[in-house]
Nucleic acid binder design. Sequence first.
DNA 1: CGGATTGTTGAGGATACTCAAGTTAGGTGG
DNA 2: CCACCTAACTTGAGTATCCTCAACAATCCG
Lengths: 235, 235
Amino acid sequence: MAEKAKIRSLPKFAHLPQGDFDQVYAAAAGRSFAAGATVSEQGDVATYFFVLLDGRLRVTQVTAESQQVIVRIVNPGDLFGIAKALQRTDYPGTATAVSDSVVLSWPMARWSDFMGNYPSMAMSAMQTMGTRLQEAQARMRELATEEVERRVAHAVLRLGEQSGREEAGGIRIDFPVSKQDIAEMTGTTLHTVSRILTAWEHAGLVVGGQQKLLLKDRRRLALIGDGEVPGLLGG
Amino acid sequence: MAEKAKIRSLPKFAHLPQGDFDQVYAAAAGRSFAAGATVSEQGDVATYFFVLLDGRLRVTQVTAESQQVIVRIVNPGDLFGIAKALQRTDYPGTATAVSDSVVLSWPMARWSDFMGNYPSMAMSAMQTMGTRLQEAQARMRELATEEVERRVAHAVLRLGEQSGREEAGGIRIDFPVSKQDIAEMTGTTLHTVSRILTAWEHAGLVVGGQQKLLLKDRRRLALIGDGEVPGLLGG
DNA sequence: CGGATTGTTGAGGATACTCAAGTTAGGTGG
DNA sequence: CCACCTAACTTGAGTATCCTCAACAATCCG
C-alpha cells in the first residue's frame, strides 16, 4: 500500500521504531473529503484525532455573535483535532476541506495510550503544540500592534511559506483563498482586503483573481509587513 | 524544608512518584527576585526553565518597533521559560517580577531527560501548553473581532480569575497593574483604558487606583465582555 | 445562458489613536 | 512629617484608520 509508505515518511512518524509504527498505523482509518466538506465540527464531541495526508483544511471558530475567525490552515502532514491535548472533550473549531483532502483518523480514546507508550509521538505532539503556540502568539502581537495593511502582508507571506508553491513569476497560494478568508485571518473586512490587494496589484507586488493569489515580490511585502515602508493605501 | 513540601503539593508535581520527585527536586535551584527584577530576558540563550513558587511575573515581548505586548501573567505554580518545548534556544519573551517572587529553576539541558523519563511531567507540560494555546487563541479571537471596551472587560475578568483574591466588596487583582499594563494586554493605549475604567467606576463596576483594581460587579463586566450590553463609553 | 458567489469601489461616519496639558498619588530625602 | 520628584493617571481636542452601508461588476459553474 503506497499510503503506508507515504505516512511513514512524514516527519511526524519518521522517528518511530518500525514495530510501533505498524501498531499505530493499524489503528488508523483513512477517509476522503471533497472540497467544501466538513471534517470535524466546532462543539461536537471529539471522537477522533487526525493527520492530514493530502489536500488543505481551514480551521475556523465562530464567536458568540457568529463572526467567523480562521484559526489556521492545515497542511499535509499536520496533526489536527487533538482536543484531548487541550484538555477538551469537544472540538474547539470546525475543520473544512478547501481542496479535496485525505485524512487519517484515530479514535480519541487511543490518545493517552499513544502519548504514554510512544514517547517519540508525544515529543512530536508537543512540538506541534509548541509551533502552534508560537504562531498564535505572533498573530496576537500583530493584531495588537499592527495596522491592517501590515497584518494582511504578514498573512499572505505566511500563506506563501506554509501553503505556497513556486511558480513562474512568484509563489502561488496552493488552494482557493477568498478575500473573505484573508479578512478572517487578519481581523478585518473583505472590503479592506480588496482595497489593499488592488493597491498591491497596481504596484506589482501580487496578482489576484477569484480565490487566487500569486505573490510576486516577497521582499517588498516583507517590508510592508515590518512597517519599514509606508504601505500603499491612503493615497 | 518547608519549600519542598510546598512544591510537592503543586498540581504539577502531585502525580509524580516520590522517588522521581526527589530526583527532580534535587536538580532544582531556588532563587528570589525583588519586584521589578528581570528573571529571564527575551533573546537570551535559554539556559534554565522555571516554576514560579511565589509572587507574580509579567511576560512581555517587544516588537521590532519596540512596542511592548504582555503575553501573559505567570501565577504561582505555573511553568515558564520552556523555550525547548517551543523548539527554541532563546527565550521568546522577558519575564519580570511584578511582586517579590520566588522561582525554582532547572538547567534546560535536563528538559529532554525529564520529558522522556517522567511521563507524568511530560503530560503536565503538555497540559500547560494546551491551556496556553487555548488562551492565546481566545485572545486572538478577541483582538480580531471585539471592540476595545469588550477586550478590556475580558482582560480584567481574566485577571480576576487567574490572579484575583476575594475581598470585601469584590475581587482584588493581587498585584500592581497599571493602565499601561492593561493596554498592553488588550492592544490599545493607556488613554483609552483610563477612559473606560473611569466610566466603569462611575457605574460602580470597578474601583480603580494607582496600579490597583477591584472588580465589584463581575456579572455586568461579563455582559459587556460578551457584547450583550452596549458598553459605557461614547456617552 | 442564467444564477450565485465573489469581488470592486464610493461615500460617510464611528471608534479609538495621537498630541497635548494638566492632575494625582506615592515614595524619598531632608 | 513635610516638601519634592517622579511615575501614573486624567481629560480634552482633533484626526486617521477602517468599518458600515450601498450599489454594481466580474467570474464561475452547471
